[in-house]
Amino acid sequence: MLEIFQYKFMWRAILASVFGGASCGIVGVWVILLGIPFVGVAMSHAAFAGAIVGLLFGFNPLASAIIFCLISSLFIGPMAEKADFSFNTSVGIIFSFTLGIAFMGLGLIKGPKTEALNYIWGSILTISDGDCILLLAIFACLSLFLVCFYKEIRAVLFNCEIARASGMPEKFIFYSLLLLCAMTVSLNLNTIGGLLIFSLIIAPPSAAYQLTYNLKMMFLLSALFGVASCLAGLFFSYLFNVPCGAVIITCASLIFVVCLVFSPKRKVKLYEQA
């Protein structure tokens, strides 16, 4: 059993799980509390499309994934502000547009499409040292941003209008949140995969939310659940030789169900204790 720790690729996978899981957990709290969970879907597909386009034209797929993802996040916000429709509609438009590009690209790639398909499922066991360092870097950026601007972030998440009316730089905070979210999604593309990363963004914060009324606690628990899902997924996929991303998502969902069942928020006090 313990022989898995001898392999270097296993250590890389473990580090990727820790940093990637924690980043997704933090970003997830943002998008859930902003009420825009589907921004995760749109971004992961933009990143996926970017990676495919990169493969097709021979650029670095990761770099082009990041660029696509950042561009999409820069479209989503202003689109919702200018035009007269909701944020989720503009997210939906970006989502379908990038999905179209991705499939077009897939169709144009000649020969076997294994590498392209890797970006759908992800392959945490084959990542490089560089990938690991990037994951660490984005996690560090996220944490730093969260700690430095915690009070502003909380105000913006709570109510954008109040934050704006009381003179906080809410635009700066909001767009930083979106851009960091985009970076996180695109960097986790080849570990968890474009199709599955969405659930890793939604499930841990939702689970954390069941357990607490405290925002700091929610960030902490969500990051922990993210890490736990990734590590458990890694472990089980090694044991039973099944695709890692799928097991990660299953674990995340299981954690959510457990938290839902045991949520103290669902208990109703029948009698007021004097």
Binding site: K151, A155, F158, E161, Y213, L215
Partner: peptide, 22 residues
């Protein structure tokens, strides 16, 4: 009208803090 999400994990004191934070 304050569009307050009733499920948001924030206490009354933390909301009042926002006035100070700015």
């Amino acid at each position: 009208k304050q569009d307050i999400d009733p499920r948001f994990p924030i206490t009354v004191r933390e909301v009042v803090d926002i006035g100070r934070h700015c």
